[in-house]
Design a protein around this nucleic acid. Sequence first.
DNA 1: AACACATTGCAACAAAGTTGCAAAAAACAA
DNA 2: TTGTTTTTTGCAACTTTGTTGCAATGTGTT
Lengths: 142, 142
Amino acid sequence: MAIAKQYTVNELLRRFQLNVTDSRKKILQLFLNQQEALAHADIEKKAGEKFDRVTVYRTLQTFVEKGLIHSIPTADNSILYALCKDDCTEGHHQDHHIHFVCEQCEKTACLDQVNIPEIKLPLGFKKEKIDVVISGICKACS
Amino acid sequence: MAIAKQYTVNELLRRFQLNVTDSRKKILQLFLNQQEALAHADIEKKAGEKFDRVTVYRTLQTFVEKGLIHSIPTADNSILYALCKDDCTEGHHQDHHIHFVCEQCEKTACLDQVNIPEIKLPLGFKKEKIDVVISGICKACS
DNA sequence: AACACATTGCAACAAAGTTGCAAAAAACAA
DNA sequence: TTGTTTTTTGCAACTTTGTTGCAATGTGTT
Ligand SMILES: [Mn+2]
Ligand SMILES: [Mn+2]
Ligand SMILES: [Zn+2]
Ligand SMILES: [Zn+2]
């Protein structure tokens, strides 16, 4: 199921079989307002004033499980989250795009338009999922 | 500087301008004995019996800085480390290989033989560093 | 409104990572 | 070797991050 920004948070939550609650509305709205990926810390800071820390953890976990957001691996080991834009469903994420980390503005974005090329693995290896994270200078900063 | 396993840990440490100490010898030996990448937790468990937790942190940090080991970004957000095999130097890591995470044996390895293909970014983006992590079933497990 | 069930906040905890500082170890120079 | 300087270590205390159980509250449904 694709996430289109035309839907209200309430509609989106319902579509993903989630009860509509204040914390979920608030946190989902953060993602919809945002182009870039959000660090867990950011979310906690922006949503945590109103909601308990534990609730933020649980909400993000739920969103990942239901296929609303996906996490992005980073070198510095902080967790980043971004809205799923492909056909992610409960249990299986299908993100065939790359992630770009700007070293200047430090923003991380999903580059949906860029496809990941085929990578030939040595004999015997079976590929299941591939994560590509490129760092450098983003369009806005160059 | 390339890391060849023919060198003793003492020689290697000296080559990388590091004083030879018990903890550094022990931890470097762990990497030399090992094919796969090591999780921070593993290292701490294997080396931590003899050395303080803080020393393990500081040693790994030093190794990364000096270009002896590199960290591998993972989806589940645990830090993995592996010996550098390319021409990593102090300050700049040049790992142009991919990392493979086996979903069965859960081992992560550097696939030095596999080159990362060119990825064309949209206009305005400047690529600096690229991380590719592929998960699936490894040779040994298939 | 009443019910069943899901979600939240709180408290208590566990794990992971950081910092300052004195003691110990390594390197260096006589 | 011995003393001196510099680096590294261990300890303690702390912060930050993440987890769990449970009672209270909120949500969806009839
Ligand atoms: Mn993405
Ligand atoms: Mn590697
Ligand atoms: Zn930027
Ligand atoms: Zn395997």
